[in-house]
Nucleic acid binder design. Structure first.
Lengths: 155, 155
DNA sequence: CAATTATTGGACATAAATGTCCACTGCTTC
DNA sequence: GAAGCAGTGGACATTTATGTCCAATAATTG
């Protein structure tokens, strides 16, 4: 039962990957992006809240609201998202579940796992949301006819 | 919520790591090894069953019974154990949870994850149970005064 | 101010992982 | 064959992860 991250985090990455597709200026609504990504809306909203509280998204309430990316997509790494959703210590625990495991008292798997983890973290720090969006399949035609209700005072 | 493998698999590795300590000839009993490894016995027994069915352990019932390693410890890799407990496809699923993801239609994270996974699998194939046992802290003195009931016809 | 819209956060529901228990089978010994 | 030992497998209990719902909040529009 290997898992790189939780479902919530998986949904966050999928949502943000296609958020760029929906709107060029980094704005999107939960409902739209969840439908686009094919992920459960009610559950994914929780993750958006976490991302908002972590400062990667700004929540805008009311008509024409939604979420706004606080940084350009190429300035948000995958590790940023993972840490925001999972906590900063996701990759810190001992693989064998030994509480005393550390550099002083390494578990038998410590060194092995450390080297693999280094490679993993390097990759997750290099790749950004922009990279994901660029690789994502482009939509065939225009997704929707303009914003469903164009904001007027905002932006 | 990163997880390299399930609790059952974690317990298996911890148990087998100290199985060598308990008995030189690759024999051990569930009760002893669970106490030694500090893992829940009832639950871990299920994992032993899986390992027995996978052919890595041979179960011996009756007095003086227990489990016997079917191969020398340096011939069983960590990946062997993981596959036996988790199934052969633990590391095969798409990290973003996309069903259509594959080499033909790679998800945005496909290449990134593939390279990390290759490194991970290489390590898990190189490291054996013997390596884990060698790295495990040696017990200070004799664990127990001989077998609690030395088998006579067996071995 | 009233109505509408979109996020918020807590309560609740379900599913999956983890953990426990016990009657049973097979084996060994006497 | 009787007794006891150790693994087996199914049923059950608990915990965690995942998923849903709804009243409340904040912002926009008229």
């Amino acid at each position: 039962m290997f898992k790189l991250y939780s479902k919530g985090c998986e949904y966050a990455l999928r949502a943000l990957t296609c958020a760029a597709v929906l709107n060029e200026n980094g704005r999107f609504q939960a409902k739209d992006v969840c439908a686009e990504a094919g992920i459960p809306e009610s559950f994914s909203r929780k993750t958006f809240q976490a991302l908002a509280q972590a400062g990667f998204l700004k929540a805008l309430r009311g008509p024409g609201g939604g979420y706004m990316l606080m940084r350009p997509m190429d300035k948000i790494t995958l590790l940023d998202v993972i840490h925001a959703v999972e906590g900063d210590d996701t990759f810190d625990n001992c693989v064998l579940g030994l509480p005393m495991c550390g550099s002083k008292q390494p578990c038998p798997l410590h060194i092995t796992w450390k080297s693999v983890k280094t490679e993993l973290l390097t990759q997750l720090k290099q790749q950004t949301l922009q990279d994901l969006a660029d690789l994502a399949p482009r939509p065939k035609g225009p997704r929707r006819k303009g914003s469903p209700r164009p904001p007027q005072k905002r932006q």
